[in-house]
Each structure stands twice: as C-alpha cells, then as structure tokens.
Design a protein around this nucleic acid. Structure first.
Length: 371
DNA sequence: GTCCCGACGA
DNA sequence: TCGTCTGGAC
C-alpha cells in the first residue's frame, strides 16, 4: 500500500524555461524540454529532477512577461465574487469540495468564537508548559520563531502582508529551515526577482515559479496555489490579503493552520491557536485535549485547536505553537519520543508508553490510557 | 527504507 | 480517513 504511490507521479509540466537564481540576476534560458526524458518512468523522473537542480545558476523571465500570458490572463473568468463560485478552481463541473471545506471551517470557527463556558484546565498545565519552556531555552532550538514573521518586514504593510501569506503558503516553518544557510530561502529568491507582489506572480508562468521556489516541499503544487492566490488577492482584495479567517481559508493552499498564523502575523489579530501536527500530537499525549463530551483523543489538528481554546488562556495562544513545535522536533518526537530526556515526563500520562516497535506502518496510535 | 510537513482530493 | 505531493533526515 505504502509503495504503490509512485506510479502516478508525473513530470512537472514540460515546457518553458528553467529558473534559478544567481545573485539575484535573471538570465534567459533555453528550453530544457529537449533534455527531459520523454517517459516518466521512475529513474528518469529522478534524473530529470536532479538535472534540473544542476542547472542552477540560470534564470528565466520573471519580469519580461510573455504576451500570451497576459492574454491568458484576460481570458480568465471574472473571478470569484463569492465562495459559491469556487467551481473556478475545480477543473471539471464537479461539486466544489473546497466549498464544503470552507463551510466546515467557518462553522467550526463560529463555535469557537462564541463565548465558551469556562472549562477546567488540565491540572499542572502551567508547570508542564514552564518545563517545556525551560527545555526549549536550554537548547539551541532548530525552530525558534515562525519563519514568516520576517517575510518582507521592511516592506509597506500591504506588501508585507502578502509576503507573510506567500511565506506561509510555502510553509516556511518546515522545509525552509532544512536548507537554511545553503541557499537563499525561497521567499528571498522570490523577493530578489520582484516576485513577492501579486501583480508579478500573476504574470509569471507556473514552471518558472516552481523552479524559483524549488527547495520547498511540494513545489509544483505550491506554485499552482501561489498563482491562484495572487489572482484572487488582486481581483478580490486589491492586491492585499483577506482580512478574515474565512477569506484566508478560501484561498487554495491555505488551511486552518496557516490561516490562523497569517491572521496573527499578517494582521496582528489572534483569532485562534495555530495548531500543527506537533501541537496536535503533544496536546494529546499530555491529555490536554479531548473530543467534545468525552475523554478520547482528538483526531485532527482542528479538533485539537477547538479543544485547546476552551481552556488555554489567550495570552498563551501565540507562544504555544513555537514552543511545542520545537519540543516536538527534539524531544517529544512522533516516533519513539525521548521521554528519558524530558523534564516533564513525570507529569505526562503518555510518558514511556510509545517506545514500542517501528516496523512497517506504526502510525501514532498511542497506547495511552487504558480507559 | 521509512517517516515527515500541511493541504487537498477521493 | 487515507493517499498524494516532494526530497531530506534519520
């Protein structure tokens, strides 16, 4: 099951130029298509990807925009006046799934924003959080702050916000860090070639875009999202980013986690906790969250967010994410957590209980709590 | 070889 | 709820 996935992998859309930075200059580059393999069999795909990387040092037109692109732009349907019209993004005439998702997010949001009857916080949560804080400060944290905070901090507000959005979309918190120090971050490269503004992104072609953001995970998908996001921002928000959670969630590639992050960093408006897999996992291990009306674990980050928000004081909403992400990467890891190094293991109901096996697919099904 | 981010699609 | 997208870390 786990091994069948590769068969469907496709080459990136074949055509056009390779684009990579070199000192921020842009150089026209001949079409690499002829060098690409015709078949998309696995080894060749890899070779192609590698070759593509090795072609670094050249650039294509980020600002000399082919006219056919602008023509294409003009042909686009008058865009997305409402969430209802999200069929635009789905290729066929299928019922747009995105719409359902948005509505789900929105209704969840309402639950959360409406006053919640005070829930008793878990015992000792302050001590636990303090312990985690100490572990984090004593270590050289691989994750110390949210990457997107820095995005375009020198820019005017509107441009900065767009930078924050793009940065979140590229998930700067995760993959960016892995390449830190080796290559300029994707966001820097975009900025260098003037592609950190929606007008430019809309005009540049998708392959070029995906080559520029290359080291980030899922670059080709993110390049697609990025273009769509830029279009929507231009047409619905005058080049700015949506001011509301629902607006952000309606953007392709922006889910609940990033929407909350962008609301916070972009608009300085904390509407909810930014819950990623680390926060989700750790809160469950600590027994801090549960499905509504029961003491079973939450099954999604969204459920965790809602549960956590019922008791965690709001002044901890922002710090909890970087804190637990760092902790989750170094000590409270998904597989075989390092409970022996954890100074709050004495207060953790899951401590030393997830150290078993790793053969094949052992997924996060913790033996915690014998009901 | 196995696992992983977060969003999406089935 | 699970597979897919990626390539790097382990």
């Amino acid at each position: 099951m786990a091994n069948t996935r590769r068969s469907s992998r496709q080459l990136p859309t074949k055509s056009l130029e390779t684009a990579v930075t070199r000192g921020g200059t842009i150089v026209r580059q001949p079409n690499p298509v002829s060098e690409a393999p015709v078949e998309d069999s696995e080894p060749e795909v890899r070779t192609y990807a590698r070759n593509k990387r090795n072609r670094a040092g050249r650039f294509s037109d980020a600002d000399n925009l082919p006219e056919q692109l602008s023509r294409k732009l003009n042909q686009k349907p008058a865009i997305l006046p409402d969430i209802e019209e999200f069929e635009y993004k789905t290729k066929a005439n299928k019922v747009p799934r995105q719409k359902q998702t948005i509505q789900t997010h929105m209704s969840r949001e309402k639950e959360v924003l409406s006053p919640v009857s005070a829930v008793d916080p878990p015992a000792n949560w302050k001590e636990v959080l303090e312990g985690i804080r100490k572990m984090r400060s004593s270590e050289d944290a691989p994750v110390d702050s949210m990457g997107c905070e820095k995005a375009g901090s020198f820019l005017p507000p509107k441009e900065r916000r767009f930078g924050v959005l793009v940065s979140s979309l590229l998930s700067s918190q995760t993959k960016e860090k892995l390449t830190r120090g080796k290559v300029p971050s994707a966001i820097q490269r975009l900025s260098q070639v003037g592609l950190l503004v929606p007008d430019a992104i809309v005009k540049v072609n998708e392959v070029t875009l995906s080559n520029i953001i290359y080291p980030v995970g899922f670059y080709s998908r993110k390049a697609q999202y990025l273009k769509k996001v830029a279009e929507i921002c231009l047409e619905k928000y005058e080049g700015d980013i949506p001011r509301s959670l629902e607006g952000l969630l309606s953007l392709p590639g922006i889910g609940p986690k990033m929407a909350h992050l962008v609301m916070h960093v972009g608009w300085n408006d904390v509407q909810g906790i930014c819950v990623d897999t680390h926060v989700h996992r750790i809160c469950n291990r600590l027994g801090w969250v549960s499905k509504p009306g029961s003491n079973r674990k939450t099954s999604t980050p969204e459920e965790t967010r809602v549960s956590l928000q019922t008791w965690l004081p709001k002044d901890e909403w922002v710090v909890i994410n970087p804190l637990l992400v760092g902790f989750g990467r170094t000590i409270c890891t998904p597989l075989r957590p390092h409970c022996e190094d954890c100074r709050v293991s004495n207060r953790c109901p899951s401590a030393f209980r997830e150290t078993a096996v790793s053969t094949s697919k052992t997924k996060e099904s913790s033996p915690r709590k014998g009901s």
